[in-house]
Amino acid sequence: MMRMKSTDYKALSVSIVLLLIAICLPWIVGDFALTLAVNMAMFTVLATSWALFSGPTHYISLATAAFFGLGAYTMGLGVDHLPFWLLVILAGLFGAIMAGIIGLATLRLSGVYFVIFTLGLAEMTRQIITYIQNATGQKGILISIWFEESTFYWMLVALAALIFLVGWLIGRSRLGFALRIIGDDEEVARHSGINTALSKVLLFMIPGSVAAMSGAIIAPRYGYIEPLIAFTPMLSFQVVIMALLGGTGRLWGPLAGVIPFSILWELISASFPNQTTLLLGLSFLIIVYLLPQGFVGLLLKIRAKIGDGRGY
């Protein structure tokens, strides 16, 4: 459980090969595919970090857009004063702090309160920022730096690799074990000496921080940010769907949801731009009724069946 086993080494080498392929992608594919790849990398970052928290705890967080917007605004407001990389780190810090505060207020209560709270969080933050901008007579923020598309891509891939590493380490740590126990039975967890509230808050800080960093990294790509761009509520839902579609039972699960859904989303919004909401809705229903454990669950089930077949 805690030592490196042969399967661990195998998983590690596969991951490294996949990472190398991902890194080489910009030299292989064309411009259009690269744009799609940037989106995929971003959603991989967001969905994987989302699943780190929501997978074991079963708390559905819809706060991604709020953290993302926070990060984008950190970049927008600071870009003329501080170096880019420092702002990314700062954004991560702010995201973690905000997640900590939200977590302390809501995570000791049942999951419903948490969902409701996070559902409106992006909208509330957007209203407040709009109000402040109106009060100061500002409309949006121009971001004066600019990167090549491939640079955005590599930054996000690096962040994704970092999250996979963190997720893998958490999975082997006491905190990871504690969260699995909490997910199974919170009462047993408490009586086994686990500070359940603290564990959940600590873990929630990861997606908060990561989403804020992604927002900061991506902000220059927009060039100009205003509340409606930075706090787009769709983002939170897309992340939930991709993570659940892939499955949260494995670290790589969300990735299995990100790739097909990003492509589908691209196709639908290109040909039927008004029907993206319908797509979101149907995806939710498909997840609940047909793929409750996501693609990961489906795969494990098939594998188990094949295993059974061999047994007879």
């Binding site: 029907q275 319908l278 979101l280 809705g281 149907l282």
Partner: peptide
Amino acid sequence: TTFGLSFVAVG
């Protein structure tokens, strides 16, 4: 599910 329904309804 009800999120799904709400999006379908909006759509």
